[in-house]
Amino acid sequence: MTEAAVRIGLTVEGVDVRFAGTTILGPVSVKVEPGSVVAVLGANGAGKSTLLRAVAGVTPVSSGRIYVGETEISDVTPERRAALGVGWCPEGRRLFPGLTVDETLDVAAPGGRRERAERIGAMLELFPVLADKRRETAWRLSGGQQQMLAIARAVIAEPSVVLLDEPSLGLAPVVRDQMFATIRRLATSGAAVLLAEQDTPRALSIADRVVVLARGQLILDWPTTMAVGNPHFEQALMGV
């Protein structure tokens, strides 16, 4: 990924999500600075995916505001948010089964033919495991390759905000390490990365800040350095 020209962060202000009258998230406020990773931790059902979906625009929010840089996107369609610089890699990858690696990247890349080819080239450099699988359909890739493709699809437009929902799920330890190294590189190149994870140690190893959700509430928002080894953090994580 090339250096992002404008460094733009993500601001979530008092967002809450309700389904049929019950609040399943929030109100939550989070800020992700450009060039940094914020890890969202919490048990299953805590609301991590819901937070990311709300930012991506695929789950409507009941109240609150979301900004990409200075631009408010709270009432904007998902396709508009993609154009405004939000990239979302959903839980479970959700690749398009009939498309090859090349085609998957091509449908997600903006610009004309030449620009798209360049962007695909950049993705294959960032995710070398995909380079010799370009003509393979998504469903024939290994789990790790599929996850890399799902992330590449989310970042090929060089979004300023990158939302990653449990990217390490189901991957072998070695592949996980590569995955987290790649995520860190995305942030280093300027993106604001919001990372929902269950793999706490690895998430902490690359995150600048860590937030913990429990039953839809944000119960902790700390710099990673403060969280590591801190018994209060461990307790928050276990929902005590």
Binding site: G57, A82, A83, V107, A154
Partner: peptide
């Protein structure tokens, strides 16, 4: 195949 995912990558469904 997946209209929600398609919208999230900028496809006008």
């Amino acid at each position: 195949q997946d209209s929600e995912m398609a919208r999230a990558i900028g496809i006008r469904v």
